[in-house]
Amino acid sequence: MDLLTGNPILLQTVIIGGTGLICAAILAIAARFLHVHEDPRIEAVTALLPGVNCGACGYAGCSDYAKHIILDALPVNLCSPGGEATVRKIAAFMGVTATLTERQVAVILCKGDDALATRTTLYNGIADCGAAQQIGGNGKACRYGCMGLGSCARICPVGAIELVNGLAVVHPDLCISCGRCVGTCPRRLIKMVPESRFIHILCSSQDAGPDVRKICKVGCIACTLCAKVVNGVGITMRNNLAVMDYSVPVTNEETITKCPQLTIVKRSGTKEGAA
């Protein structure tokens, strides 16, 4: 006892050290008694998922999806970022057969960047597409085209959308098919399409041809040439606009060469093709 009271350094060491030990013991006991048992398979499935937490599956992140796979026997093919490999691995782990769906890639149906499409007025407000749309756009003459304020680029979890000269452009090789960008576009320009589709009509304008010509060098003028090339199969005319029906593969590259406005482009959606 004298040793302790006579030596303040030792006394303090004992007090602090003792407090620490007691607390550690309490924590250890608490961890044991309050332990929540979780199916170890959930952790295993989570580990198989890519961990992007993008929400494309419809659940709040990868572990949440894993939990639902185990508990609710959810289909194992909902993870688009993981792609085929992930689906196969989870299917093998769960002992089920999964139907594989083709990878979907985002495409933005506008080609009018600042060099090609006219801006009539200046915009002075928040750099957010939804906010700009509410006050009548951001000065781009075309009321249907990409405003280039980048709301889609900001929400993309993997940086697959880039703003190039006032136009949002998707990098298909980076796209993880989560589809979060689709809802951010107030002009509904973004579509998720199967990666094997490589011909795209990059315009959404419903203005009449002459009006389009005045404000955009690459807008669809509804000349119908592309639709005629494919006999209306896969490309249909709607509201002054040629619309690609992505459920039917269009592979005839004459559609591209015939387009007088260069609206139609060839752009591979696959990782290999784009890279």
Partner: peptide, 11 residues
Amino acid sequence: NPSTWVISPSP
């Protein structure tokens, strides 16, 4: 020529 006109939120 409205290219000098400004679109901005109210007020």
